[in-house]
Design a protein around this nucleic acid. Structure first.
Length: 601
RNA sequence: GGCCCCGUGGUGUAGCGGACUAACAUGCCACCCUGUCACGGUGGAGAUCAGGGGUUCGAAUCCCCUCGGGGUCGCCA
């Protein structure tokens, strides 16, 4: 070991000791003959002094070093001369007087600064991820992630869970996202799939009598990327036997509460986690994953404006709804600001945005206090009714969207987030966890002309709703809850189906023939026959949790080596072409692609 | 596949039709400096303004296309 201590751990207790340090040059301050080097390792930074009078050879080496050179330094820990302590540095009371110094490696001028927290173009960071990860913020994120995963393992271990690994090469099944496929060399024409989640395997582990299982599981989905979606991501996959919804929710709530208190004590959670139904969430927030750190609740205005002659309201009366919410103290918004909001709404499919700005104090007293394009189609009574439903008073701006329920809720939920951003209403130190309950089991896919699982096809329906499967499938409620936090869906949890006949019935509803069911889901159906216990579980996304705890805007910031929006690894340059030999071994032939067609012969 | 935003020395930004021979900060190089800690001082190098085409007397600036990147809709059981 080249080090006796880490740079960051030095303090006055070691004064007088001779230490061996190794690390990277964080910064060098050259005073002509006297040179200071801030030496950095994972644990922190310490100042190393090179003094010509005492150790001229060490100083000669220090003259040559540049930022990010790798040094081995031997020297004595000294208390800093009075008045030269640095309170901004954890090790600021001491310094190391260098006696020997060796350059272990050099470094070109880095493509971006390692020793300061400037914003750098993300592609450049991803290309040189090993340099990016040296920076303080990324290092902290990786350490936080480690602490989160460690906490989860300890927490679940203490409660009798065992961690079981499941295969990465599994069988492709329909439903859900596009699979990543791996061709088989020994079975020409056949493919493995990478797991979208270990869903069926963990259920089979319940049949196997594991009772309490968890896994920090890598999952793969070949869909387009988002700030909170990567082609591969990590879930805490968890399943328990002989439980009902309350058991899982209680465990989840306890785990996340303790997690925050342990890993990020500067953040707060609301205890107990609020619960709201899917219908309630849609009604009040227009989304099933509301950010509950602020109000700005939506009000239904359909009835209030039913008698108005305003075109959009009239159309909504026929086959839609009218909803809105109040942006406090935004009554002075300019035409330009309102146009921006309208553009945002249109981006989410709304035909337009109707705004009502209220002047004065309290309730409007005459139409002169009402500024709106719709003003001449509204009576004072109607405006008062609208203001009341959205809680608006003088000085506020009311944002209203009319149309199909899906569009109205979609646009307003986004406008709600936008206004919260503009008004700085979201407390950055608050993690507003909540459970959303009462999801429908199925939703009709107009595109595919069949029923689809809202969650996944293994979700159990409520016992009393099972008869509805034959009559009104859309009314059947699922034993399924979502865990949301600050506007992100962290996890779905559900009680699974543990009876073969019911599971087959669901597959049938989803439009599969008996043969397809047998071919695609035969294994789990057979397993359910062999004494499958009642069971259920959750699968929270680790990346999103760590992102929220770290206060980051994308999960890429908490993944060591993420891919970009086009699913490209910019450091390793994956994906990449493979050799004809490899293709041949895998019994694969490539279809010509456009780009090669265009290339000259 | 659609929509929106971004691309100017190594990095981060300014400039948004003429005074641009492209500015500022930082970094880099050289020299000076024994108590700094974002050390300081002096000097210097470094940019075909992402690429291509167009409009114009004149384009970093306006328009079009392409490329790269980000956000988002669709998609993501």
């Amino acid at each position: 070991m080249l080090k006796s201590h880490s740079c960051g751990e030095l303090n006055p207790k070691q004064v007088g000791e001779r230490v061996a340090l190794a690390g990277w040059v964080h910064r060098r301050r050259d005073h002509g003959s006297l040179i200071f080097v801030d030496l950095r390792d994972r644990e922190g930074i310490v100042q190393v002094v090179f003094n010509p009078a005492q150790f001229p050879q060490a100083l000669a080496v220090a003259r040559e070093v540049r930022p990010e050179y790798v040094l081995a330094v031997k020297g004595r820990v000294m208390r800093r001369p009075p008045g030269t302590e640095n309170p901004n540095l954890a090790t600021g009371e001491v310094e190391v007087l260098a006696e020997e110094c060796q350059i272990l490696n050099t470094c070109p001028t880095p493509p971006f600064p390692i020793n300061e927290e400037t914003e750098v173009d993300e592609p450049l960071r991803l290309r040189y991820r090993y340099l990016d990860l040296r920076r303080q913020r990324m290092k902290e994120n990786l350490i936080l992630r480690h602490r989160v995963v460690k906490f989860i393992r300890d927490f679940l271990d203490a409660r009798g869970f065992i961690e079981v690994e499941t295969p990465i090469l599994i069988k492709s099944t329909p439903e859900g996202a596009r699979d990543y496929l791996v061709p088989s060399r020994v079975h020409p024409g056949k493919f493995y799939a990478l797991p979208q989640s270990p869903q069926q395997l963990k259920q089979i582990l319940m049949v196997a009598g594991i009772e309490k299982y968890f896994q920090i599981a890598r999952c793969f989905r070949d869909e387009d990327q988002r700030a909170d979606r990567q082609p591969e991501f990590t879930q805490l996959d968890l399943e328990m036997s002989f439980v009902d919804e309350e058991d899982i929710l209680a465990l989840t709530e306890e785990m996340f509460t303790f997690l925050v208190e342990t890993a990020t004590p500067s953040l707060r959670v609301i205890k107990p986690f609020p619960r709201l139904t899917y219908a309630e969430a849609m009604e009040r927030y227009g989304t099933d994953k509301p950010d509950l750190r602020f109000g700005l609740e939506l009000g239904d205005l359909t009835e209030v404006v039913a008698t108005s002659d305003f075109g959009p309201f009239q159309q909504a009366r026929a086959k839609g709804i009218v909803k809105g919410f109040c942006a406090p103290s935004c009554g002075n918004y300019s035409r330009k600001q309102i146009d921006e909001l309208a553009e945002l709404a249109k981006g989410y499919g709304a035909a337009g945005l109707i705004t009502i700005a209220l002047a004065g104090e309290g309730k409007p007293e005459d139409m002169g206090q009402v500024r709106s394009l719709a003003a001449k189609y509204l009576t004072l009574e109607q405006v008062k009714g609208i203001a009341e439903r959205v809680g608006a008073k003088g000085g506020d701006l009311i944002l209203i969207v009319a149309g199909q329920p899906g569009v109205v809720n979609g646009a307003l939920s986004q406008l709600r987030l936008e206004m919260a951003r503009r008004l700085h209403m979201a407390d950055a130190d608050l993690l507003a966890f909540a459970f959303v309950t009462g999801f429908p089991l199925l939703e009709w896919s107009a595109e595919e002309g069949r029923w689809q699982s809202m969650h996944h096809p293994f979700t159990a329906p409520l016992e009393e709703d099972i008869p509805l499967l034959d009559t009104d499938p859309q009314l059947a409620r699922a034993r399924h809850y979502d865990l949301v936090c600050n506007g992100y869906e962290l996890s779905s949890c559900s009680i699974r189906i543990h009876s073969r006949p019911l599971q087959e019935r669901i597959f049938g509803l989803l439009g599969y023939t008996g043969e397809e069911i047998e071919e695609r889901f035969g294994t789990i159906l057979e397993a359910l026959e062999y004494g499958a216990p009642p069971h259920g579980g959750i699968a929270p996304g680790i990346d999103r949790i760590v992102m929220l705890l770290a206060g980051e805007q994308t999960i890429r910031e908490v993944i060591a080596f993420p891919k970009n929006q086009s699913a490209v690894d910019m450091m390793m340059q994956a994906p990449s072409p493979v050799s004809p030999t490899q293709l041949e071994e895998l019994h694969l032939m490539l279809r010509p692609i456009e780009r090669t067609e265009r290339e000259p012969e």
